[in-house]
Design a binder for these strands. Structure first.
Lengths: 209, 209
DNA sequence: CGAATTACGAAACGTGCGTATCGAAAGGAG
DNA sequence: CTCCTTTCGATACGCACGTTTCGTAATTCG
């Protein structure tokens, strides 16, 4: 209710969208290196003051753009846990690849984490960005963890399985590849990863209950 | 041989160490936010020119310091794979914790990735830093992967186990926790993680060969 | 010894981030 | 209609990064 009852001059409704659009275009075109606040403001036909009133930092603006690009991942749920997990991981990898190719000079085998690396650093620098990033990921992860937990409850996984831990293994390996070792993430890797995490690596004879 | 046969005035041998020491102290004391080149140069009693002749970027200097702090991790090899892996992961977590507590205001449950986040971002920004980071990690990881592979060859793991993939699951989960979800990493987590990765999560009856 | 080469310190510079200031504009409250 | 509050655009500012310039010091080559 109070949101409509503000006191002074209302904020330009279109400004937010104009700025976000200009920022996204600039980020995807030239990458984070050439991403300057003045350029975005000029491109959005907006004074720098207006921009800083909405996002307190260049990082905040960039994260808003990146988060916006990420939060459209459909979660499959066909009942086949392995297939669903592989599909989900591949979706994530595709989304990451979009941000990885940001900027000029993106060779196909370029081992660069791209914008996600900036996201991690921004989360390390600004506590509030860290909280935002965690919230976004928790929301996304909750869907996948629910997927795992349903499989556990219907008996496809051992009852003592920790869904969150399993998800850490899968998603963690993905991001580890992207951010640190920089090796490519293709579907075959996702399949091997899911298989290994599900069935483990111990010999059958030594398999514990 | 040619290194001694340079032409002009030789570089001040002590300058490198002075700068690195001053940079490390400043990084650990006040974190990356307050880490300024001028301050480091002043603290090391060195002109900024001298500093930039050795490290082309503030990021390069910071990474040199961080890499220096990380590359002293002993790798256990007692023959007990599970115990060795748990110990190794705990060692890594401790090393990460050192960098996590950099800067003022480090509450015990502060979900901040600290300097490692900056390392990831720097690797994304500068290709040469990315190559350096990958080289450092590959060297470290090779030891752990060798550990896994020896266990596989002596029959403690299934012969078709991919050591690198298993390591991705373990290390990835660790860094994922640190960098993104920001949750703490304690020994109990490392134990659960290793157990889950080794024995998998499928029910015994459905266990495939 | 003299010339060429390279490193050093000091200082100035351009650029980008984030802040501050100022006048004008757009709404609500009396 | 007149205040009051808030936003907007424009401009200037301080700070830090990274570069450049310049005079000086150290070392090698001829």
């Amino acid at each position: 209710m109070p949101p409509s009852a503000r006191r002074g001059r209302p904020r330009d409704a279109g400004a937010d969208e104009q700025i976000l659009r200009a920022a996204e275009q600039e980020l995807l075109a030239n990458g984070y290196a050439a991403f300057t606040v003045d350029k975005v403001a000029r491109s959005a036909a907006v004074a720098k003051t207006t921009l800083y009133r909405r996002w307190p930092t260049k990082d905040h603006l960039a994260i808003a753009v990146i988060a916006r690009m990420q939060d459209e991942v459909p979660v499959p749920d066909t009942g086949d846990l392995r297939a669903d997990l592989v599909d989900y991981l591949e979706q994530i990898a595709l989304g990451l690849d979009r941000t990885r190719r940001a900027g000029p000079g993106h060779a196909p085998d370029d081992p660069s984490s791209g914008l996600v690396g900036e996201l991690v650093a921004a989360a390390a620098r600004h506590p509030d960005i860290g909280a935002l990033v965690r919230a976004v990921f928790e929301q996304r992860n909750a869907l996948a963890i629910g997927l795992i937990d349903r499989a556990r409850r219907r008996g496809d996984l051992r009852p003592d399985t920790d869904p969150e831990l399993l998800f850490d293994q899968l998603s963690g390996a993905l991001y580890y590849r992207l951010l640190i070792t920089g090796r490519p993430i293709h579907r075959a890797y996702a399949e091997k990863l899911v298989d290994a995490a599900l069935s483990g690596v111990l010999p059958a004879k030594e398999k514990r209950t």
